[in-house]
Structures are given as C-alpha cells and as structure tokens.
Amino acid sequence: MRPGGVEFEDFVRARGSALLRYGYVLTGNAEDAADLVQEALFKVSDTWSRVRNKDSPEAYVRTTMARQHISWWRRRRKEHVTDEVPEEIHHDSHTFGELWRELATLPRRQRAVLVLRYYEDLPDDEIAAILGISRGTVRSQAFRALATLRIRPAVLERGQV
C-alpha cells in the first residue's frame, strides 16, 4: 500500500530534501535528521487528505518536526536503538566551523528557537505558536542561546518593524 497515495509521494519527492536540511539544522546530525523527517512524514501520511487542504502542508510538517524534536525526542531515541540500523548511515565526519560545533552544546529548545529564527527566518510570535510557548519564552530562550554562542543580537525581538 502506498502511504498517503501518489500526491503524498510527490510531496515527499519534491520537498524531502528541503525537509532533511531543516531536520539537519534542528538535530545537528544526519541520522537524527532522517529519523525526524520520516517520523513527521509518517504521521502526516496518515492524515494526508486533511493536511493537503491546509494552506501549506509543508509548514504543517515543519511544525510537527520542531515540536517532535523538542518533546518527543527522548522516547524516540530509545525506540531507535532497538530498531534495525538503516542502510548507508551518513556519519558526520566533518564540521562546519566553530559556530556549528557550539550549536550542539545548546539545550534542544534553545537550538530550535535559533533555527526557527535564523534558518527559517520566522518572527518570534510565529516561533511561539509553532513551539507552543509564549513569546516571552522565545525571547528569553533566544537571548540565552545567543549569549552562549557569543552572538550580538541586533535587536532583542524580531518580527516587529
């Protein structure tokens, strides 16, 4: 059986790489990125007929990924250990400079806030909606994360012109 049907498959083919890249910056490694994307897509495939009618199925998938990465990850990791190892695991043997390495030291939620702000380029109120936290929390998480990374914020709050 084809999960989600042909249209879903087309969506995965067309947007899979972009989602993997998003998963990669969220998780910091290739294996977890693939896991996160597949899990989110798996969930979405069940309800594809409803998801596809949304304004943006991709935004829905990305939101699912961000939330899952933060709240669900511990459990998933445990499960993963017992699963069979997928073929051709891509291990990280390279790094992308100091900043990328230091990102790995951040708590998961702080990292997610930074990714949504600086990779996804979203304003704080949308980040708050995606992660299900208050805008104040977004701001404080971002502030702490930026301080850890010694990044000088240009403005303290984004999304307000």
Binding site: M1, P3, E9, V12, R13, G16, S17, L19, L20, R21, Y22, G23, Y24, V25, A30, A33, A34, V37, Q38, E39, L41, F42, S45, P86, H90, H94, F96, G97, L99, W100, L103, L114, V115, Y118, Y119, L146, L149, R150, I151, R152, P153, A154
Partner: peptide
C-alpha cells in the same frame, strides 16, 4: 559574532544534509 554569522553557519551546515530515501523509510515505519 553577528546574527548574520549564525545564519551563515546554519545555512552552510544545511548544505551537508544527506539525501535519504524517505518514502522507503516511511513505508518501513508503517
């Protein structure tokens, strides 16, 4: 550092995300 540098680091890291056969992976999960 600047925020721009962070954007640059994330962006460049994203370039390294490997390709995966997602549909096969989803099917296996199912």
């Amino acid at each position: 550092r600047s925020e721009q540098e962070l954007t640059g680091a994330l962006r460049r890291a994203a370039e390294r995300a490997p390709e995966q056969d997602l549909l096969a992976g989803i099917g296996e999960r199912r």
